[in-house]
Simulated assay, not measured.
Amino acid sequence: MPTKTLPTVGISDKAFRYRPAASTDIRKTFARVKRELAREQEQRELQASTVVHLVTAIKNGK
């Protein structure tokens, strides 16, 4: 059963900005999301790498 996607911001919230469908570019939206996801993945990998280096340094007594 598909899950229902709800808006993250309510229409009465000051952060809400109406954008007509005709003025959106889905390609730009997908490209932006793809960049954001890649950036998050890179940060997770960097954190994991840092932890591995710290654990290795601790084991080696440095």
Rank of each mutant, 00 (worst) to 15 (best):
V9W: 07
E40F: 04
H53F: 05
K14C: 01
E42S: 04
V55A: 10
T50P: 02
R17T: 15
Q47T: 07
Q47A: 05
R44W: 05
Y18E: 13
K62L: 06
F16D: 13
R27V: 14
V52Y: 01
S49P: 00
G61E: 03
E40P: 00
Q47M: 06
K14P: 13
V51H: 04
I58E: 15
V51W: 06
S12Y: 15
Q43N: 05
K34W: 11
Q47D: 13
T56N: 01
I58V: 11
Q41W: 02
L6W: 15
A15Y: 06
A21G: 01
K59G: 01
K62N: 11
T56S: 09
S12D: 10
H53Y: 09
T50Y: 00
R32E: 13
P2A: 11
A31N: 08
R44Y: 07
H53S: 07
R17C: 08
E36V: 09
R19H: 00
K4H: 12
I11E: 11
L6N: 11
I26C: 01
K59V: 11
F30Q: 09
F16T: 08
E36W: 11
L46Y: 04
G61N: 06
G10A: 15
I11N: 07
E40C: 02
F16V: 01
A48E: 13
A31E: 14
L54E: 07
V9Q: 03
V55L: 06
G10K: 06
T29K: 07
R39K: 01
L54W: 10
T8N: 10
I58D: 08
Q43A: 01
A22L: 14
H53K: 14
K34V: 02
K34L: 11
K28R: 07
T5C: 04
S12H: 13
R44H: 08
K28Y: 09
R17D: 10
E45S: 15
V33M: 06
V52D: 01
K14F: 03
A15K: 14
A48Y: 03
R32Q: 12
T29A: 07
A38N: 09
E36Q: 09
V51S: 04
P2G: 13
R44I: 02
K34N: 15
L6R: 09
K34I: 03
F30V: 07
P2H: 15
T29H: 08
R19G: 01
F30P: 00
K62C: 12
A22F: 13
F30C: 10
K4L: 13
S23V: 12
V33K: 09
E45H: 02
N60L: 05
T3V: 14
A15T: 08
P2N: 07
E45R: 05
